Amino acid sequence: MTTFVLTLTAIFILIPLSVKVGLVDKPAGRKQHTGSVPLIGGISIFTGVGLTLAWFGLPDNVHYYYLLCGGTIVILGVFDDFMDLSVKLRLCVQVLIGSAMVYGLQLHVGNLGNLFALGDVTLGYLGIPITLIAVIAAINAFNMIDGIDGLAGMLSGVTFVSVTLMMGMGGQLEHAVLPMVLVFALIPYLLFNLDVVGKGKGKIFMGDAGSMLIGLTVIWLLIIGTQSDTASFRPVTALWIIAVPLMDMVAIMLRRIRKGQSPFLADREHLHHIFLRLGLNSRQALVVITSFSCMLATLGVLGEYLMVPDLIMLILFLIIFSVYSYTLQHIWRITRAIKRYKAKRRG
């Protein structure tokens, strides 16, 4: 409740301030919202989380590093929201933040679990570059998925609830504090972002500061949950609890690369855009995608606690990803077929 109140207070303070300094999102090009919307969701979430951790005392050094790295990514996001920074500069800062995690906390992806039923797959020195790639991937996955109201917040909420449950049941109680606090910080943001309060006049966006903070926090928690000395769940389970942002990012980037385009090119080909073109409104698309995410996360958590072998969980995930990727590649053919079917029914 403390986090909720602190985040809500930050929102009320930051809305008029953001308008004065110009930290707003104006409709143009791919952005089709109405009016200038304050980009203060990420700042308010970080404020609520940071003040809560400071207020009740930080459980260990991990949280000090989190606030340092999280504050850095928020600052990067704010400058990006203001000036639209280059991809290279954003990637450089993200690598530095990942390096702070690796060398400051000695925390990196070193064990992928028993993926092939032949014993644990250890990475050795490859773990460091793979960790940096994972940090960049997670940050940009949530940045890319943030395309309709509430989507990045709801999908990250699914992940944070899942991680809280697994860390709590797996004995990582000191680390379960962070995802639990994040859930309560997301609630006031979602109330404003989805127009539950304010009815348009108080609408706010997460901004790059928020989506990148969420991506960093997700990979931070997944590495702690799977790689630390007190790990509470398997690496393969992490795939399931971030399935939708991960699959959307990988499928989109692969398609762009095949077309000879930059994998970081902005477009309107993401999952939420497809649902909108199929005739759903943004709220309906949000419900469908969030429900899909909940289903996959639930399967991952159940697989973890029923101790379904890593290999089976990996194969199931790859099957779902393959179907997802194929559907995305042929979506317009599928869309035309659906529209023809609807036309026939109406006729």
Rank of each mutant, 00 (worst) to 15 (best):
V196K: 03
D208R: 12
T230H: 13
L191I: 14
G200P: 08
D80A: 10
I242F: 02
L6C: 01
N193K: 12
K26G: 06
L76W: 05
G41M: 07
Q261W: 06
R234H: 10
D81Y: 13
L85S: 04
S262N: 08
M167E: 06
G50W: 13
L165E: 07
M1K: 12
M253N: 14
L278Y: 10
D80M: 09
R283S: 06
D195H: 00
G48F: 09
T52S: 08
L296R: 09
Y64R: 01
L173N: 10
N193V: 13
L112W: 08
I15M: 11
L14Y: 08
Y305N: 01
I43Q: 11
Y326I: 09
L132F: 05
F292N: 08
V5Q: 15
F317T: 12
D25K: 12
F142R: 05
C294Y: 06
D80I: 14
P309G: 13
Q261D: 11
L155W: 00
R268Q: 02
S262W: 10
F233H: 08
Y341V: 03
F142Y: 05
I257T: 06
P16H: 04
S228D: 14
D267W: 10
M247S: 02
F275D: 04
E174G: 03
H330Q: 04
Y341I: 06
R277K: 15
R277L: 05
M307Y: 03
L151H: 05
F275K: 06
L191G: 01
T34S: 10
M144A: 05
Q106R: 10
R336E: 15
M167V: 09
R336L: 05
L91K: 00
W332S: 03
F205T: 11
S86H: 14
G48W: 15
T131L: 03
Y324K: 09
H33F: 06
L53Q: 06
